[in-house]
Computed example of a mutant assay.
Amino acid sequence: MTKPTIGPVTLSDTHVTLAPLEHAHHDGLVEAAQTGELWRLWYTTVPSPEGMTAEIDRRLKLQEAGSMVPFTVFGADGRIEGMTTYMNVDRANQRVEIGSTWYASRVHRTPLNTQAKRLLLGHAFEVLDCIAVEFRTHFFNRQSRRAIERLGAKLDGVLRNHQVLADGTLRDTVVYSVLPHEWPTVKRHLTSLLEYRPD
Rank of each mutant, 00 (worst) to 15 (best):
S100L: 07
E55T: 15
T84K: 02
A124H: 06
S192F: 11
V133G: 02
T44F: 04
M83K: 01
L62A: 11
L21Y: 09
I6W: 06
V107F: 04
T101P: 04
Q143L: 09
S12E: 13
P4Y: 05
V127W: 02
Q143T: 10
L155I: 02
R109Q: 09
F125A: 03
Y103H: 12
A147L: 08
M68R: 14
D90E: 07
R79V: 11
P47Q: 14
V127N: 09
P198Y: 02
G7F: 06
Q163D: 13
L128P: 04
G75V: 02
T191P: 03
H26L: 15
Q34H: 05
A65P: 04
S177P: 08
L190E: 05
S67W: 02
D129F: 00
V46T: 15
I56W: 10
V174Y: 13
E37Q: 15
G28I: 11
E64Y: 08
H138G: 13
T101W: 04
N88K: 11
A76Y: 00
L41Q: 14
L170A: 15
Q143A: 15
G168W: 06
M1V: 05
F140A: 12
P111Q: 00
G36I: 10
R142L: 13
K3N: 07
R146H: 09
A153M: 03
D199H: 12
G152L: 01
R145C: 09
I131Y: 03
T169P: 09
N141E: 07
T185P: 00
F135T: 00
R197N: 11
R146P: 00
K3H: 06
G66H: 05
K117C: 00
Y86Q: 04
D172Q: 12
L21D: 06
F139Q: 09
H25W: 10
G66L: 07
E149M: 03
H25R: 11
Y103I: 05
N161W: 11
K3G: 01
S177M: 02
T191M: 09
T137A: 10
D27Q: 14
R40K: 15
G157C: 07
D77E: 10
A124F: 05
I80M: 08
A65C: 07
A147Q: 05
T110N: 01
G82L: 06
K117L: 02
K61Q: 13
L41M: 14
T5V: 08
R197K: 08
L21F: 10
V73Y: 03
C130Y: 01
V16Y: 03
L170V: 15
I80R: 08
L170Y: 14
E182Q: 13
R79S: 08
A92M: 00
P184F: 05
G75S: 09
S100P: 01
L11M: 08
E195N: 11
L112N: 02
T53K: 15
E81C: 08
D156N: 07
D199G: 09
